[in-house]
Write a protein that binds this DNA or RNA. Structure first.
Lengths: 205, 205
DNA sequence: TTAAGTGCAAATACTTTGCTGAATC
DNA sequence: GATTCAGCAAAGTATTTGCACTTAA
């Protein structure tokens, strides 16, 4: 009982920075194997399956969530909300800023940081850390799921696993805790069934 | 099939910074619920159950691992290795530095950063991120295990779950990947069976 | 109108690095 | 004795914040 949803670029050529991304110093993540491309290949607005025009008038899903929580909706927030609602990947702040600025240049990075933080506090967004030193965000409403990160390309694949929930809850229970949230990330390497290995993208040195 | 090993302070009073810790700005972590105390309460050398004197002469476990890998052993590295070998918690760089400096004041924070990074690359240490913006380290040889973080106190409890491994491997397999490493962290709240709740340490606002 | 949001730039916090002197193998 | 390492301070990168101005409700 599982279901995978790919969130990086649809294809395999996700190596490049895809934009003037920073990489120098803070090029570390959280696992033993260094991940060279923290979710390279961005994917913003749905390729062609945009939200029906009618629903657009009511704003993005996240915008509605903001309104529901009584947040003041400024133009900037509306744009940021839309960018995040339409994102199929897990953009970092810099990327959210880039996409938002494309829609409305009156937005500053500081506002993106502030907004994203506010939305996280309100439970509308969830912060993720797939290494690379930058925080990434995704709408909470995406439902519970976990991530599989391709250590060679940085691509992130989401998956959910029904049985897991209960098991984890049981473990926490035994330790005397109630789970507030779960972070399950698999860092893996793509299997190469056809040709034999030894020719991997990021090759382990 | 599970086994829990508590790694934070043994007791419950782990609120204080335990030392001149920084807290201001970078006070964010990775989950919806804000964790106010990123593993507060440090625990360095084993309270009283120190490594037998004989084994000490051969250096700490980590030192031996370094030698085995042909690393040049300087006094600083030896001290840092010892601090990490004897740590029962997951100290961040600043904390490793503090403990190391206590044993040998000729150590600079830059060296700690360099050493810790080197050891991670060599597979001797593993970097962890429990939120709070600082990387934490623990010896790889501690074996595979996961973490349960108390969102109220920041205490970290390690646990392992045999069945898990196979299941995760199966999931990765279905997605066409081979697992390189796993990150499973449960963020939870301690159950209060006796008195009713509403009076929690960090209280949610 | 008024509290809340925004831009900008400066400030923080964590981490890396260039360079020179020092220590290891 | 050559190569690698350490210290120091400066540079980077990610994120937050003070302040004056703007805007939503």
């Amino acid at each position: 009982m599982w279901m995978g949803r790919e969130t990086g670029c649809g294809s395999e050529h996700l190596i490049g920075p895809a934009d003037g991304g920073r990489v120098p110093a803070a090029n570390r993540e959280g696992q033993a194997s260094r991940m060279t491309h923290p979710e390279a290949g961005h994917q913003e607005a749905p390729p062609r399956r945009q939200v029906p025009a009618r629903r657009r008038q009511a704003g993005s899903a996240i915008e509605r969530a903001c309104v529901a929580r009584g947040l003041k909706m400024t133009g900037q927030r509306r744009v940021i909300a839309r960018v995040l609602s339409e994102a199929l990947d897990h953009p970092d702040v810099e990327e959210v800023y880039r996409r938002a600025a494309r829609l409305d240049s009156r937005i500053s990075i500081a506002t993106v940081y502030r907004t994203v933080r506010l939305l996280e506090e309100k439970g509308i967004l969830e912060r993720r850390d797939f290494g690379g030193g930058r925080a990434r965000y995704e709408p909470s409403e995406h439902g519970h799921h976990y991530h599989l990160i391709d250590v060679d390309t940085g691509r992130v694949i989401e998956f959910s696993e029904g049985g897991q929930e209960a098991l984890l809850q049981a473990i926490a229970e035994r330790l005397g805790f109630t789970i507030v949230s779960v972070r399950l990330e698999l860092f893996g390497r793509r299997n190469v069934p056809e040709r034999d290995e030894a020719e991997r993208p990021g090759g382990n040195k």
